[in-house]
Each structure stands twice: as C-alpha cells, then as structure tokens.
C-alpha cells in the first residue's frame, strides 16, 4: 500500500500552486453569487457562496456573519437542561432587551426602568439580579421592585442623568459581551446538544464552566488565530473553504485548499491573496509590476535600487528565460577540470 501510494507523490518541480489556483478558480465560476443559507435553524444566517469565498481568501479581519460553535463537556452534553443553563450564561442580554421604557426623575435624581416581564423570564433573570448588576457596573444605588428597577444618582445635572440612563440601557446585564443570540442545536448523529452563538468572544466563552474548550470553534479565522495560534488558523481557513465549497456541492481536493491555507499562513500571520497580501509582497520587482500598480513598483524599485533575484515564474517569462518549473527547475553543471566522462574527439 505504502509503496503504491508513494508512486503518486507529487514530482519535483510540479507547479502545485498554479494547479491549486486553477482547481479552486474553475468551480468558483459556477458558484451562485449570493445564496442565503439557513443553517438548519431560524435566525442564524451565514454568508455563503462566492462572497464568503472572497472573504476567506482576502483574509478579512471580521467575517460578515461570525458564528461560534460551543460544544459541551462530556458529562452534560446530552442533558438539555444543563446545556440550556450554559446557553443562558452565554446569551448576551442588554438592558435595552428587557426594559420596556425608562423614566428619569430629574429633581429626585432617579431613573426608573420598567421591565418587560416576559423577556425577563425568557432570559432567566430577576429584577433583583439586575439591580445588583447595575450597582456593580455603575457604582450607584439601585432598588428592585416587582417589575421595575429604580436607580439613585448623586447629581441633579440633567445631562449627566440622561447620559447615564442611555449608557445603562446599552450595558450588558447577563451573558458574554460580543455574543448575540445563543441557540441550542442537537446533533442528529450523536444526539448531543451544542450551542450556536452569533458573534464571537472566544476568550470569555472558554471561561464558562462546562464548555468543551477542546472543540470550541468559530468561523472567524482571525479570532481562532488570536486564541489558538497560527496552526489552528490554518486549519480553520481550510475547513471554512472546504465548507463553503461543499455547501454548493463543489468538490475540490482538500490538498489544494490546505496548500492555499499554508501559503496564507506561512508568514506567521494570515495574509490575503492579492495586492496587499501575498501577491503584493513577492520578492521580485518584475513579478509585482506585472500584477498590479506597475508604475508604483517600478519607480520604487528604481529609487531604492532593488535587486530582482529572477527566481520566480513571472519575471522569467517577462525576460524570455526558461521558467524554474518542471524540467526547467533543474540545472546541469560540470565540475571544472573533470573531463573523464566526456568523449574525446579523435
């Protein structure tokens, strides 16, 4: 087996990068331009198709629709109630989500928040919890009633009171900042429950008890890079590329995608393919000038006395030399003075 598979190894000098580019590019032309895909549930819409592919390849800092997959530790993953409790810890609840309206009383230095009891119940919070949270966040006195929270302030300044009220409305009461909705899903094969959350804040989610840190995953490549390092970013990138393509039933060999991911992560950080990424930072002046912004590159090269090592493909085609690919990548040289293998002319 091993011997047989070794026969199919890539040959020396094979232009693997070009083959990878063509293998992804051709099916890319068949992709639907904009397709909205509902990942089995309502409310989480992920970008897919060509826009997503472009987003990945250009190494955008934030994806348009970041999504975090939170898996639960072995003990609790099949227990719906335990999973629900964790989801509640993650689900971001802002004051404005649970408050019906708020009324300022300027002369008495008070703000009264009227709570929406239905939303309150859905979030699993009580007015007392909210009052104590507000006290902690803003260092003010807060009183809890049945369905209202009254905050006492120190000042009569109307501007400050209004501003504090608005700031309180925007504050995160429970859950993790940066995460939107957390929805519980069930894996049909294994029967385990997991949480899909919009947005991401991996560092904070990891600290939640009961979350399986080993399988935490997000479609935001840069977030993965920051949390787990460049190697995980590479896998995430390849995985997302694969997912985007297979969603539209396009099959591209995984090695092409891994090669692209490898090239994008080889500098230690994630670089896009294009003017500001890989193509714009090539060694050769001529190769860069042949791609985009010709004049800029040539003038800069002339001004700084750059040297072109002539080791790539583009620059060699440009000057009419043999390209260093395939048989062109091998050079023959004779040891000076060694004429033992040369046939002598009679």
């Amino acid at each position: 087996m091993a011997k047989k598979s070794n026969n199919y190894n890539v040959q020396y000098g094979e232009p693997v990068g070009m083959i990878a580019a063509q293998s992804v590019g051709e099916p890319g032309t068949q992709m639907i331009l904009r397709l909205f895909h509902f990942a089995g549930i309502e409310a989480t819409v992920t970008t897919s198709g060509l826009p997503r592919l472009a987003e990945l390849v250009d190494a955008k800092k934030r994806p348009t629709t970041p999504i975090t997959y939170v898996y639960i530790e072995d003990g609790a993953k099949k227990d719906f109630e335990k999973v629900e409790a964790i989801a509640k810890k993650i689900n971001e609840v802002k004051m404005q989500n649970i408050v019906r309206r708020f009324v300022e009383n300027f002369p008495k230095k008070r703000i009264k928040f009227f709570l929406n009891s239905q939303e309150l119940e859905a979030a699993g919070l009580t007015s007392k919890q909210i009052a104590s949270k507000i006290e902690k966040l803003f260092e003010v006195e807060a009183e809890a009633d049945e369905d209202a929270v009254t905050v006492r302030l120190q000042t009569t300044n109307m501007k400050i009171i209004r501003n504090t009220g608005v700031r309180m409305m925007r504050s995160v009461i429970s859950g993790i900042e940066g995460v939107g909705k957390a929805i519980i899903q069930q894996d049909k094969k294994t029967g385990e429950y997991f949480i899909i959350a919009t947005g991401n804040n991996l560092g904070a989610i990891m600290d939640v008890a009961g979350v399986d840190k080993y399988r935490l995953y997000t479609n935001d490549v840069f977030a993965m890079y920051k949390q787990f390092g460049i190697e995980s970013a590479r896998y995430t990138l390849a995985k997302e590329l694969m997912h985007t393509l297979s969603e539209q039933s396009i099959t591209v060999d995984h090695r092409h995608l891994l090669l692209i991911a490898d090239a994008m992560t080889s500098s230690g950080t994630i670089k896009g393919i294009g003017r500001h990424g890989l193509s714009g930072q090539k060694n050769s002046v001529l190769a860069r000038a042949a791609y985009e912004e010709t004049v800029k590159h040539l003038i800069n090269a002339a001004a700084f006395g750059e040297i072109d090592p002539m080791s790539g493909v583009t620059e060699n085609i440009l000057v009419g030399k043999l390209i260093p690919l395939g048989t062109g990548s091998v050079k023959l040289a004779m040891k000076s003075g060694d004429t033992s293998k040369v046939k002598k002319n009679k």
Binding site: K226, Q227, F228, G229, I230, E231, H254, R255, L258, D262, T265, S266, S267, G268, T269
Partner: peptide, 27 residues
C-alpha cells in the same frame, strides 16, 4: 515558514526568536 513569539502556542512553549518549532500535523 514563520511563527510569531506572540503566537499563543509559541508563548506556551516560551519560544525565543531564532528557535525552530516542530509541528506534528495531521491532515
């Protein structure tokens, strides 16, 4: 290929510039 000293994995090993990190990959 490179890895930054600020990379979470390099930090964990407290790697210094100039050292080489071996990665046991499984694709």
């Amino acid at each position: 290929p490179k890895i930054f000293t600020s990379d979470p994995q390099a930090k964990k090993l407290s790697a210094k510039p100039g050292q080489i990190i071996k990665v046991h990959r499984t694709d």
